[in-house]
Design a protein around this nucleic acid. Sequence first.
DNA 1: GAGTGGTCTAGACCACGCA
DNA 2: GCGTGGTCTAGACCACTCT
Lengths: 239, 239
Amino acid sequence: MSESPQYRPLYRQVYDMLVKRFAAGDWGPAQALPSEQALAAELGVSQGTVRKALDALAMEKLIERRQGKGTYVAEHTQESSLFRFFRLTRPDGERAVPTTAESSAKRREGRAAELARFGLREGAQVVEINRTRLVDGAPVLLERIVVPSALFPGLEKHTPLPNTLYQLYQREYGQNIVTTEEQLRADVARKDDCRRLKLPPGSPLLHIERIGIALDGTRVEWRVSRCDTAKLVYAVTLS
Amino acid sequence: MSESPQYRPLYRQVYDMLVKRFAAGDWGPAQALPSEQALAAELGVSQGTVRKALDALAMEKLIERRQGKGTYVAEHTQESSLFRFFRLTRPDGERAVPTTAESSAKRREGRAAELARFGLREGAQVVEINRTRLVDGAPVLLERIVVPSALFPGLEKHTPLPNTLYQLYQREYGQNIVTTEEQLRADVARKDDCRRLKLPPGSPLLHIERIGIALDGTRVEWRVSRCDTAKLVYAVTLS
DNA sequence: GAGTGGTCTAGACCACGCA
DNA sequence: GCGTGGTCTAGACCACTCT
């Protein structure tokens, strides 16, 4: 292993090295990594050290380990990952799979608030996606998604956009969102909200702002959702 | 180690045994556990196996390990734990330490919805706590807390109640809340909300329902919070 | 210096998936 | 039967804390 100025345990160095290689796209999603033995030999450390690094990566859901088969880069495809950041459920706790209606995407110059959030310089382009999401055929959720155009070239031309954008980000652009920071507020429906969600004036709405953060710490997506919580509630387990 | 009908790894058995002993109160909060060597000798397993169990417990914040000193039962006292389940922050992201005003606690018969949530039989007693919480001297949050009286005998006589109830639960009643399940909705302020939070009619409120779950899986607390999100927002990081 | 947890190694055996 | 990850052990050495 390479020397490091400040001390870091061996398994940590292995961990960091693997994260870097994920970010660089050395192994695509759903692809098998070398076996523990192979990695250990390649890096000149013991299998136990590699194992400790891999266990930590599995804990953070960056990889998936299957006994008897091998170790795979986690894919944002499975049911489990599908709902990883989607916290809206039916009021009884049942999962809801929303469909998409009235989706639009366009490229334009970033506004000040957007540039600040992404740390972009003035004049930078962004892609804005607006969509209405339905559950059981009824509109319940409005989403406005803004991403830096430089990270997602041509995203606005992807039609139709898939239901699960994060999978697209990962597969087509190598942007692996692993963390989200969300802020929730209560708000009252504005005229536009009422029209699109078919709500009476003055209805309460759950206003959710999310920043999506990629593997390397880059802020990659800003998402504002406005939700009619008569039909979907935000559910989260903390432990 | 004792035999188990269905197979569980050794380190898992050690883990479960330790959890049981925490629940039974064998070691009080902030008390040192036996050393890894001592535990290993006592249980007749290797130190590595004990270590794996302890590492898992540390990951779940049930214990704290300090190199050179020992392993301690986690205390719900430190700044870090104080905010473990308190997700409300100022809109700019700054932590807010709310104070309590107008706190009341009374014992009464549980209502149907409460009994159902706790799995209690009809006629069981509960303790209900109502309080208004202030930030910078202004009321921003209403809390209604309901707990089974059987688990918290005499709780209604604790005056004044501390700001951090979970610490009290742990220290006085051995109830260690380690998980919470929350549901968030947007709502409009009712008359009572407006009066207590000094809000104009029709203001939006964030309505939060929380179930607090103890170490052994028991549902121990039901908490309904209604929050003026002009002053505090709900912030959560998912990863 | 003694005792603690933290890191690292080497090797054994088990459970699983697949050809 | 082979290769994979999963468990378990035993022992060495390091880093930290306290006396």
